Simulated scan of single mutants.
Amino acid sequence: MRNFLMLALVGLLLFSCKPYQNTKIRKNQITYEDFRADQRLYPTDDGLIKYIDKGEGPVIVLLHGVPTSGWLYRKMIDPLAANGYRVIVPDMLGYGSSDSPEGFEIYNAKNHAKRLLELMQSLGIKTWSQAIHDAGGLWTWELMRQAPNKIEKLIVFNTIIYEEGFYPPIRMKPGGMAKTAMWAYRNGLTTNTLLKNLFEQGLKENTLNTLDVEGYKTPLLEGKTQAMYYFFSQTCNELPDYSDVFENVTIPVSIMWGIHDTMLQWPPQETRATDALNVKSEDIHFVDEKHFIQETKAEELVYKMIDFLN
């Protein structure tokens, strides 16, 4: 009887908490297998980084956050490339298709930024525009500290700027409990629960289907939790201060923010962030969505991005 109850509990965790609400597949919908087939690889000293490089023209980097990957931008890559841009979409180390080596400080902002700079140098790209989301903001602020003249224009999707407005869904203390949670994520015990909660908090309405979720779930089940462990147990508790970087921002900046986001809220930091980044009022756009605006507002974002970049 005890074994039966344990099996029933595991079954409940695995199958009753589906992270998607829709089973209908959209016409010409990209699969995660197809997305990965388009990725190239770049070997760093810490491990392999996978990335998309598509199109020709001015370069735009699309940078994900936690716990996503380049898959977040899958609906935006081809439209941007079709409009005359060379689109670079990396999976940062520890996420998506990239390696997830053992380690802790290799996942800090300094090392993420260093590896991204090395990738762009390997591609022969000297300057570029960059769109950032979530923790991708921290990695970008660090990149701008290390190499101030690389990014020519900046597009800020719901990203981490200041402690004000930063309300992560998970904060953990380093150690056994946090490591156990990571183990459960990568072994399928709480993977669905994590993603369901994430999408319920991050979307006004969870309209994702099985193919959409596949690109978020597969890396977790492949063991990509080392970088997440650093973020949830370190970054979320001791947010880096990049005020010195903001003081020297002279490039054009556009804000495109899901105004209903509860995890990264704009109003508490609006005045401070707008002043620090020198954002013009006409370059601030509020989107009728929560956190994952790329999932439901891709077409709108691409239109606004092209208008800003031009």
Score class of each variant (00 low, 15 high):
Ile132Glu: 12
Lys24Asn: 12
Val279His: 03
Asp244Ser: 08
Ala178Glu: 00
Glu33Ser: 15
Val89Tyr: 13
Gln39Cys: 07
Gly47Asn: 07
Glu118Gln: 11
Gln201Leu: 13
Glu205Trp: 01
Trp139Leu: 12
Trp266Glu: 12
Thr210Gln: 15
Leu208Lys: 01
Pro169Val: 10
Arg2Ala: 08
Gly175Ser: 01
Ala184Pro: 01
Ala37Ile: 05
Lys114Gln: 13
Trp266Ser: 03
Ile259Val: 05
Asp244Gly: 09
Phe246Asn: 08
Ala178Asn: 03
Ser69Leu: 09
Gln201Tyr: 09
Asn158Met: 15
Gly103His: 00
Trp139Glu: 11
Asp99Lys: 06
Thr218Val: 04
Asn278Ile: 11
Phe35Ala: 08
Gly223Asn: 03
Val59Gln: 01
Val87Leu: 00
Gly11Thr: 07
Lys54Glu: 10
Arg36Trp: 05
Asn83Pro: 07
Val10Gln: 05
Asn248Ile: 06
Gln130Trp: 06
Val287Ala: 10
Ala147Lys: 04
Glu56Trp: 04
Arg26Glu: 15
Asn209Lys: 01
Asn22Val: 00
Trp183Asp: 08
Phe104Ala: 04
Ala181Glu: 15
Phe231Cys: 06
Ile77Pro: 04
Lys204Asn: 14
Ala181Tyr: 10
Val279Gly: 03
Pro252His: 15
Pro58Trp: 09
Leu264Ser: 10
Lys54Tyr: 12
Pro240Met: 02
Ile160Asp: 02
Tyr185Gly: 00
Met6Asp: 14
Leu189Gly: 02
Glu56Met: 04
Phe286Thr: 13
Gln269Thr: 09
Asp212Thr: 07
Leu211Ala: 11
Ala147Asp: 13
Thr191Asp: 13
Leu277Ala: 03
Asp307His: 15
Pro19Ile: 00
Ser98Pro: 06
Leu138Cys: 07
Leu211Tyr: 13
Asp212Asn: 09
Ile49Lys: 05
His133Ile: 01
Tyr20Met: 01
His260Phe: 09
Val87Asn: 00
Lys27Trp: 14
Leu154Tyr: 14
Ile251Phe: 14
Pro252Phe: 13
Ala147Met: 03
Glu152Ala: 06
Leu239Tyr: 00
Gln201Asn: 14
Leu264Cys: 09
Lys150Ala: 10
Asn206Val: 04
Lys153Asp: 13
Arg186Val: 01
Leu62Asp: 12
Pro174Arg: 00
Met228Tyr: 10
Asp288Phe: 10
Ile49Glu: 02
Gly65His: 11
Asn187Arg: 05
Ile30Asn: 13
Glu300Lys: 02
Asp283Ser: 12
Phe104Arg: 09
Gly47Met: 08
Leu12Glu: 06
Met76His: 05
Glu142Ile: 08
Met177Gly: 09
Leu154Val: 09
Val66Ile: 02
Ala227Lys: 02
Tyr51Glu: 04
Leu72Val: 12
Phe292Ser: 03
His285Phe: 07
Gln21Ile: 00
Glu300Thr: 06
Val249Asn: 06
Val89Ala: 13
Tyr167Gly: 00
Glu282Ser: 14
Met305Arg: 04
Ser233Leu: 06
Gln226Asn: 11
Thr262Tyr: 14
Tyr303Ile: 10
Ala135Pro: 03
Pro268Ile: 11
Ile106Leu: 14
Lys75Tyr: 13
Tyr85Cys: 05
Thr193Glu: 15
Pro58Glu: 14
Pro267Thr: 03
Lys114His: 14
Asp45Val: 12
Val253Asn: 15
Gly65Tyr: 03
Arg171Ser: 15
Gly11Leu: 08
Leu117Phe: 08
Glu214Ala: 13
Asp78Leu: 06
Ile25Asp: 03
Ser233Asp: 01
Pro43Gly: 04
Ser98Asp: 05
Pro79Gly: 07
Thr210Val: 12
Gln130Gly: 02
Leu13Asp: 04
